[in-house]
Amino acid sequence: MTVMPDVQVLSFRDAVREGIRDAMRRDERVFLMGEDVGRYGGGFGVSLGLLEEFGEERVRDTPLSESGFVGAGIGAALGGMRPIVEIMTVNFSLLALDQILNTAATLRHMSGGQFNVPLVIRMTTGAGRQLAAQHSHSLEGFYAHIPGLRVVSPATVEDGFGMLATALEDPDPVVIFEHGSLYNEKGELPQPAAPVDIDFARVRRGGDDLTLITHGGSLRLCLTAADQLAADGISAEVIDLRTLRPLDDQTVMASVARTHRAVVVDEGWRSVGMSAEVAARVAEECFYDLDAPVGRVASVEVPIPYPRHLEQAALPSVERVVAAAERAVGRRG
């Protein structure tokens, strides 16, 4: 008798691809379009092989017109299709911002609830690959600012696979941020692979002394930092926000009410970003539970530098997370 394994180990890239493949097999309305998604297999290799399986009608190489393919995606979604639009990296999405912010996010409201835009936009985010100031943004907080969008940030192989299907079911536009450093990361995908919720944060590691709140590419930093802190006798709980808009406050506040200390870790710039929002909410809702000021680890506020050592110095790191955690529990001045 053959026993089917109950998990499959694969890379984040392969997981996202399997998610797309699975959605396209199950629903004829789903199609993928973007720059180089077809013959080239995607700027990050996510869609390799999909053109061969589904053909040019459903895997469309588009002209280099970001506003063009996002706008066309909106039109197709209005007509009942379920387009997945891939924007190669988050900085290119700025060329389509009017279509995303001013149209996709507002059409339900502008039409008095008559129109909806079931569009899924995937884009690569984040720094750390020496791509310099114009290809290294983390604009999750910027998109999470916009009413009408749902913004998700998968950090695990399971979420890389499973969030897509749920996003396609969502009647509203969903923006999926895939951190570039995750694509080669391997992880476990439970079998049979299934859709996952895009509503709730998740505790990735339990702990009692403080809560590290993070998402996407920074989850790994926090888990590594938690290991190091544990060796030092500090028990850190790690929360993966997963969905950045709407934020799941409950999971965060329940944890902070118990640990009494919080550090927010986000690769976006520090001011007016995701980390500021989470810290403000913790202060609003858990002020009397806190035993220390809310800490933040974020990118320093410069265009992301090109030289490797400068880039690393600009970004959150395991060391900085550990230091912030030690400060929160009073081990540092």
């Binding site: 039109g75 979604a77 387009p83």
Partner: peptide, 11 residues
């Protein structure tokens, strides 16, 4: 104009 094109592509 883009929505019209996308709608047409869907059709």
């Amino acid at each position: 104009a883009l929505h019209a094109v996308g709608y047409g592509m869907g059709a």
